[in-house]
């Protein structure tokens, strides 16, 4: 399993460095910008009063940008799930199926490695890659933190990253599960992306429209704390995200352990519905 883990992690090193360094630079820039925001606090308060609440709802319903949690949410953590989840969804949907679609999986699984070990090794590598990206991001935030005037410690700054990690793990596991259920990686990534966007809109707009709260409760981002986690993690919400991630990972494993390894041209790529309609014809 560790051979698979190391190899999969090595394959993602470019993605880890690319995402991690860009987000770290963004984080460093955000922190170094804070003193300027602080000095113009009143002007920003007036500015936000002029913005429509529907727009502000997408950025955590912020009204005072000088408040550390509101600032961190507005400039980074409120929209970051939808940005880094692109990596999580693409990596999760391709974790096994990318190699299956290219034909590489046939050769790998002809070696003495069980499907369970392959699955576990790759999933752990995916989780580690997300962790590494977020660790680099966190570093970008904490290095310029002293002297920035932002009243958040380095340890507290890690907590929104933990909440973000749980969200990304969930979307990666969901995309992985869907990739093993649906006929192709593209279909899996599209459906997982749809859930992500729906959850983002439901979570943002439910601040304005209470009718959307029922929908929001069954979608993942309702349980994402964002920058509010700097004041302490909500273990219940974190547990729901990690539990859902574990559930999708388990369902994916159950599918992978039982299904055929597909090869293009061998059929099995059509949706069951398409097969039924063909049979009816």
């Amino acid at each position: 399993m560790w051979t698979i883990f190391r190899h999969a992690l090595r394959r993602s090193r470019g993605q880890i460095l690319g995402w991690g360094l860009v987000l770290a630079l963004l984080g460093a820039w955000i922190i170094t910008l804070y003193p300027a925001i602080l000095s113009q606090g009143e002007q920003y308060r007036q500015l936000f009063k002029a913005y429509p609440p529907e727009m502000l709802a997408f950025f955590g319903g912020v009204t005072d940008l000088t408040e550390p949690v509101a600032y961190l949410d507005f400039v980074f953590f409120s929209y970051m799930p939808i940005v880094i989840a692109i990596y999580a969804i693409l990596a999760g949907s391709g974790l096994l199926v990318a190699d299956e679609e290219s034909g590489v999986l046939d050769l790998i699984l002809a070696h003495p490695i069980s499907r369970t070990r392959l699955y576990l090794g790759r999933f752990l590598a995916f989780a580690t890659s997300v962790l590494a990206i977020l660790a680099l991001t966190w570093l970008g935030f904490v290095v310029p933190l002293p002297g920035s005037g932002l009243d958040v410690g380095a340890g507290a700054m890690a907590l929104p990253c933990v909440s973000l990690f749980a969200v990304l793990l969930l979307f990666g596991a969901l995309a992985l599960f869907l990739s093993l259920l649906l006929p192709s990686r593209g279909a899996a990534a599209s459906v997982a992306g749809l859930v992500l966007v729906a959850s983002y809109f439901a979570s943002s707009l439910s601040r304005l429209n209470p009718d959307l709260q029922a929908l929001d409760r069954v979608l993942p981002l309702r349980y994402y704390q964002g920058a509010a986690a700097v004041n302490g993690l909500d273990w219940g919400e974190l547990g729901i995200l990690l539990g859902a991630a574990a559930l999708f990972a388990l369902l994916g494993w159950a599918l992978f352990a039982r299904r055929d390894i597909r090869v293009g041209g061998e059929a099995g790529w059509r949706l069951p519905r398409a097969r039924r309609s063909r049979a009816a014809a």
């Binding site: 290219s102 590489v104 050769l107 002809a110 003495p112 490695i113 069980s114």
Partner: peptide
């Protein structure tokens, strides 16, 4: 796993 440990396999559609 026991089978594959003792078998050498060349797939018809070989990909690396």
């Amino acid at each position: 796993v026991a089978v594959r440990a003792r078998v050498g396999y060349l797939p018809g559609e070989l990909r690396f």
